[in-house]
């Protein structure tokens, strides 16, 4: 539809890196993040924001423990999206609320 905003188009990498506020990094398949519209928009090559260029998303508001769960959830979704009767993902009750908020932020509803 439109020319890329930046002349040099970066080829889409297979994996992307999620970075937490406290510096933890989680590498997940790009496909697995498609469940989150926020991350999808972030990485959209047409929009070509900084994240799209570096394949690296930094979340200033999410700490490592929660982001780990989020990354795990991405994997969990990616593995199981085409299957039925899948066992629930275990979430420790103590981080429940924070995970919930992160999910809301990322549009995982």
């Amino acid at each position: 539809m439109a020319e890329p905003t930046n002349g040099s188009q970066i080829p889409e990498t297979k994996y992307i890196t999620l970075v937490s506020r406290d510096g933890f990094e989680f590498v997940v398949p790009r496909e697995a993040t498609k469940i989150s519209p926020a991350i999808t928009g972030m990485l959209d090559p047409l929009n070509n924001f900084k994240e799209a260029q570096t394949a690296r998303c930094t979340f200033e508001e999410i700490n490592g423990i929660v982001l780990e769960k989020v990354a795990e959830y991405f994997q969990y979704w990616y593995r199981n999206k085409d299957q039925e009767d899948v066992a629930d993902l275990e979430i420790p009750p103590e981080i429940c609320l924070e995970v919930l908020m992160a999910a809301d932020f990322l549009g995982l509803t």
Binding site: L89, E90, P92, P93, L97, E98, L100
Partner: peptide, 20 residues
Amino acid sequence: MLSGKINNAKPGPRIRPPRR
């Protein structure tokens, strides 16, 4: 999608409130 199992035998772990 979110679920947690609470072990009733021990005192349950504290739920941390989200940052304001």
